[in-house]
């Protein structure tokens, strides 16, 4: 079976006038079909570098990156453009790719209606709550029909309650639309509750230290909030906490 994303022996260095910084050292990573992979690491460990490599914003110094599918990027902040209304914010990706047609507008209409934003389509970003803005940002990414979603700490700008609710929403959207996703985060609980696999990064230069497969006993459908209540949640939390703690020393 081919994987959706495969990174093999990836090295990445950044150069400045005064020094050379090795950020990724022999990084290996796979994203399997239908799964959500969380990359958990301390801040400054090179999480964003991995995402930038996957979106080809930067090139690896050496190593191989294979991506089967189109990538959609979701950022830490929603980055909605204040002078565009919600509809125009969502269509910006399609506008740029010159793919704005009836079919894509229909898809957007369906997404907006499914995720309770349809009545706000003519409103402006500042009239929306943080959670709603984040949903709009996700729909903006989904509108361009990506196969794989990269989520770069997508909830860290939100307050705690909103954060739980939005991760619930986003999780459902990802699963409903049958997408694969890589979630980059420093929040252990968030990683366990959302992901099927959690890869732990070491301190810089970063490599994958360990990969945990998350298996929770849950009756019925999994959602992040229900996952937090499962009996194994605490154990995974302790394991991952230790894993990160060791890295700090």
């Amino acid at each position: 079976m081919t994987h959706i994303i495969e990174m093999k022996n990836v090295y990445k260095s950044f150069y400045t006038e005064s020094s050379e910084i090795l950020v990724l050292k022999d990084l290996n990573l796979t994203l399997k079909k239908g799964k959500i992979l969380a990359i958990l690491g301390p801040s400054g460990s090179g999480k964003s570098t991995i995402l930038n490599l996957l979106t080809s914003l930067i090139q690896p110094t050496s190593g191989e990156i294979m991506i089967n599918g189109k990538i959609g990027y979701m950022f830490q902040r929603d980055h909605l453009l204040e002078w565009r209304n919600i509809m125009d914010n969502i269509t910006i990706g399609l506008e740029i790719q010159k793919k704005l047609d009836k079919e894509s507008l229909k898809k957007i209409e369906r997404l907006l209606k499914t995720y309770d934003l349809w009545e706000f389509r003519n409103g402006f970003p500042k009239e929306l709550s943080g959670g709603m803005r984040q949903r709009v940002a996700l729909i903006r990414t989904l509108a361009t029909n990506p196969d794989i979603l990269l989520l770069d700490e997508p909830f860290s700008a939100l307050d705690y309650q909103t954060r739980l609710l939005v991760s619930e929403d986003i999780y459902k959207i990802i699963k409903n639309e049958h997408k694969e996703a890589i979630l980059v985060t420093h929040d252990i609980a968030e990683a366990i509750s959302m992901a099927d696999e959690v890869a732990v990064l070491s301190m810089r230069p970063a490599a994958i230290k360990n990969i945990y497969e998350i298996k929770l006993t849950i009756e019925g459908e999994k959602t992040p909030l229900i996952a937090r209540k499962s009996p194994e949640f605490k154990d995974y939390f302790d394991d991952l906490w230790k894993e990160l703690d060791i890295n700090d020393k």
């Binding site: 950022f75 830490q76 980055h79 453009l81 910006i92 506008e95 790719q97």
Partner: peptide, 19 residues
Amino acid sequence: EKVKMLQSFGASKAQILTK
């Protein structure tokens, strides 16, 4: 970050300017 957002959709320099 907003520039990066547009680049993630494949925006050209001219598009970043006008949009």
